[in-house]
């Protein structure tokens, strides 16, 4: 029961996914829309489990007074700061649509946005440092990589066109032909990989989604 029921469900749902796509009939279309819509709702409900896991991890850290537990308090401070205004919903509370976001928008604009943008922009510094230290033409392959990288890096910014109009054209050519050919070959590989992995799931060979006890 613990093993066979999920495997049977995966088998049935998998075949439904394949067959509904290949049968161009009104009934199959209705069934497809119902299942996809239903799973959209299920995924949203499941998402809360991820949020719970994150908060629980920090709660345990606080409870056990692990190293850096004070920072975990800030996770809860940030969480409740945003949550309270979100649930308050401009006085309409959380069972009415959020017509105006009010304070949520303020927190989003001035706290969430700068933090997320900054975290990702830090990578600009690290990519520069890494390129200086490790980007070496140690072999022919590495040399090709380096030349292509420099040509594209230079060709995609407008200053290259000011120096010689051929630079942007070379960069565009590299992207449209050799790069495109490689990506296409990788696409074939990805598709074959997805198909074989999907079949493994449908036929119960791949069971990692069962939590390692399958």
């Amino acid at each position: 029961m613990k093993k066979n029921l999920p495997l049977t469900i995966a088998f049935i749902m998998g075949w439904l996914g394949i067959l509904l796509d290949y049968i161009p009939h009104k009934v199959s279309e209705v069934l497809m829309t119902s299942i996809t819509k239903g799973l959209m709702v299920t995924i949203a409900i499941v998402a809360f489990l991820g949020l719970y896991s994150l908060l629980n991890m920090h709660w345990i850290k606080i409870k056990r007074k692990n190293a850096g537990w004070g920072y975990s308090l800030l996770v809860f401070a940030g969480f409740f700061f945003m949550l309270i205004f979100g649930l308050y919903n401009q006085g309409d509370l959380f069972w009415k649509a959020q017509v105006e976001q009010g304070m949520v928008e303020w927190i989003y604009t001035y706290i969430f946005t700068p933090c997320q943008e900054t975290m990702f922009s830090i990578l600009a510094f690290f990519i520069a440092s890494a390129a200086y230290r490790t980007f070496r033409a140690k072999s022919m392959e590495a040399g090709i990589l380096l030349v292509a990288a420099v040509l594209v890096m230079f060709g995609v910014v407008p200053i290259s066109g000011k120096i010689w109009s051929g630079f942007p054209e070379i960069a565009q050519w590299l992207l449209e032909y050799p790069n495109m050919a490689v990506k296409r070959a990788i696409f074939f590989g990805i598709a074959l990989g997805v198909v074989s992995m999907s079949l493994r799931i449908i036929f119960g060979i791949e069971r990692s989604y069962m939590g390692g006890e399958g």
Partner: peptide, 17 residues
Amino acid sequence: KMAEHFYVGVATAYLFI
């Protein structure tokens, strides 16, 4: 670390909302 943790909390609540 303070900014990072506060940001994680805000992001989690935003996703919830």
